[in-house]
């Protein structure tokens, strides 16, 4: 994104004013003027398995920090300073999600492919497949299967809008929410054990209950709820991480 000389001068003036007044209205204007930069930078990270909308959010947080911290007295353009802050925020976002930045795209693709294979093999065999069986079906090594499942860890925490591996193409997790649910169990029972569980979305409460209280396996839960097993895995991992974080607060 580029500004003409007049716009640049105007922005410089606003930054100088904002440094003095900390006026929230000026702050909003400065943020808005640079949203294009945040979006541009978010796009550069968009091939790493995370929805662009989420990344734009993260980049905007970085932009906000940059506007608040920028010192117009220093001999550096705001865009240079902000780029550094925003990219830092995006990298931290990926780092916090595990090793997603280093998980090669090939592994993320294999993870998605494995989701479908787990579903079809489970059906064919009438039981949960072993890792060698998955590897043979996907025509990759066992190590690659394990690596992909681990790479999927980052993907597990992705937005509700991301497609769910192994589910119908284009079907997103959001469309499963709010449906009438045969597996729905008494909310009070769960709440008694932990008020933290009650804060999870209803579907995740149900899955948690079926797995940890009723003792169903992940594949049994998947077929009962009509979603893929990887989806169940991913929701369980995310719920447990949320419960752990909430328990520490």
């Amino acid at each position: 994104m580029t500004f003409d000389a007049g716009q640049r001068e105007e922005l410089r003036r606003k930054f100088a004013q904002f440094a003095e007044s900390r006026d929230p209205k000026l702050r909003d204007e400065l943020i808005e003027a640079h949203l294009g930069l945040a979006e541009y930078l978010a796009r550069r990270f968009s091939n790493r398995g995370e929805p662009l909308d989420d990344l734009v959010q993260v980049a905007s947080v970085g932009l906000l920090k940059a506007v608040d911290r920028f010192d117009p007295e220093r001999a550096v353009e705001f865009s240079t300073y902000a780029t550094h802050t925003i990219v830092g925020e995006l990298k931290r976002h990926f780092r916090d999600k595990g090793w997603a930045v280093r998980a090669p795209r090939r592994m993320q693709e294999l993870y998605l492919r494995l989701g479908k294979i787990v579903s079809s093999l489970s059906q064919e065999l009438g039981r949960s497949p072993t890792i060698p069986e998955l590897a043979a079906e996907a025509q990759v090594s066992e190590e690659e299967v394990l690596e992909a499942l681990e790479a999927g860890q980052a993907y597990r925490f992705a937005s509700l809008d991301a497609p769910s591996p192994g589910d119908e193409d284009g079907d997103s997790m959001g469309s499963h929410l709010g449906q009438e649910d045969a597996g729905m169990v008494d909310a009070e029972h769960r709440a008694a054990l932990s008020p933290l569980i009650a804060k999870l979305p209803p579907r995740e409460q149900t899955i948690l209950h079926l797995r940890f209280f009723d003792g169903l396996t992940q594949s049994e839960i998947a077929s009962r709820l009509g979603i893929s097993q990887m989806h169940v895995s991913r929701l369980l991992a995310r719920s447990l991480a949320q419960l752990r974080a909430a328990a520490e607060e």
Partner: peptide, 14 residues
């Protein structure tokens, strides 16, 4: 990796 070597299922690995 070790679970796979022992023949654990995908369910068990997860």
């Amino acid at each position: 990796g070790l679970a796979s070597r022992l023949g654990f299922s995908y369910d068990d690995v997860e």
